[in-house]
Design a protein around this nucleic acid. Structure first.
Lengths: 129, 129, 129, 129
DNA sequence: GTGGTCTAGACCACT
DNA sequence: GTGGTCTAGACCACG
């Protein structure tokens, strides 16, 4: 588990994304215990309050839950994980297509294929002038 | 000409992008005169200092030049416009592919085709596990 | 006997309340023996220290007493039980009316009627602008 | 505008409630500018970060919005304000009725009447054994 | 002057 | 040792 930051954006936002990625891509599995807040702070090289803020938002998303005094855990609700994964993908795909349209790329073929192990169809986007 | 903002990010950055888009997608053509700073401020509904700052950055990119007494104009250097367009596309494509990888989308086929009217090859990306 | 917790508040406080409720509402009657601490811990799914601490507070309230070798029992002092019940009700009614006032509900009629089996008057609250 | 705190609960939670109350009860009206974060901190006698955290949550509720560098304002969406008001009332009414049930108050008549100036029916609760 | 972010460090509650 | 809260103080971006 490691984190990389781009200094142009708030660190806590990037933490929210990167932690979410670890969950939706399966690196962190349902009911896995997250490292302690202060340990994560050490790993990421940031203050524990910054981690706290990020995890608070991840919890609001529904990806993790807090067990008072025991730690924080990945939700065991796979539906939530799946739907957040779709949401993350959708947001980024739409952002990308919108930017491309603005820049003046008129024809885009985009096909995403999910992990073989997962059920469900592929995403397919085709945009022509 | 109009602008849309996401209140969560610096407005001047969004302005730089959106003005650049108008130039690389051909809405503003080489040697076109840009609206006066205060007019742009009105259109965008922001402080004229913010416009000023954004235009300064766009000028640094090489997309516009200032004619002290007459206003600001789109560069007539088509090579610069083209290379900035490529750069904008490249940045966004790379950002997009990186994010998808993190999220756990293993297979992506992406094909971009430029405006018919332009010379130059198409972009093609293919990433598989 | 069962317990439900809201993970956002101290569990031991919630335990004090819920155990008190079982006594004032008659589920646990005077001189009834409480389940052993470790048994309660099992039922509630919490650490036995947490139960211990909660019972200590309930004992301070006067609702239970400890018979060192035999366990903990509900007090047989019905006056104490009654007065604690009144106190619990009063606190909650006042909290409720205060909140409603802040929210801007100007007129509240509230009438509480005790269990038929109990002696004593009813509570009645009437608050108008 | 003033704030009162009960030391048994997190200050920022109480701030969220009290600020929400000021909005739903009409003390702060749609599009009113809130005092600056650091000014509020002074009024409430707490650190500006604590205010920040509270306002962030109030914003998530939809009651206020942030205008970058200009300040924070009450939403002009009266529907949101109204629905949050209902939500706040509902939560508190339900909490109250639940507590009363646990305590063993079998019969409760509760009637809330909204501000005369507002349209809409009254709330009425009647719970009997 | 406005909000936003981050750090360092402290203290508390709970188990 | 876990998370949660709060303070003090600093620095930044924006307009």
């Amino acid at each position: 588990m490691k984190f990389e930051f781009d200094n142009n954006f708030p660190i806590h936002t990037q933490l929210v994304n990167q932690i979410s990625y670890y969950i939706v891509n399966g690196t962190l599995k349902p009911n896995d215990k997250l490292p302690a807040v202060r340990e994560l702070a050490g790993i990421a090289g940031v203050n524990h309050n910054t981690i706290q803020k990020a995890l608070y938002e991840v919890e609001n998303l529904g990806l993790i839950y807090t067990n008072r005094t025991n730690g924080k855990f990945v939700t065991d609700n796979k539906e939530v994980i799946k739907s957040i994964k779709e949401k993350l993908i959708k947001e980024r795909v739409e952002w990308f297509l919108t930017e491309m349209k603005y820049i003046g790329v008129s024809s885009i073929k985009l096909q995403l294929k999910k992990e073989e192990s997962e059920e469900g169809e592929n995403y397919e986007y085709f945009k022509d002038k």
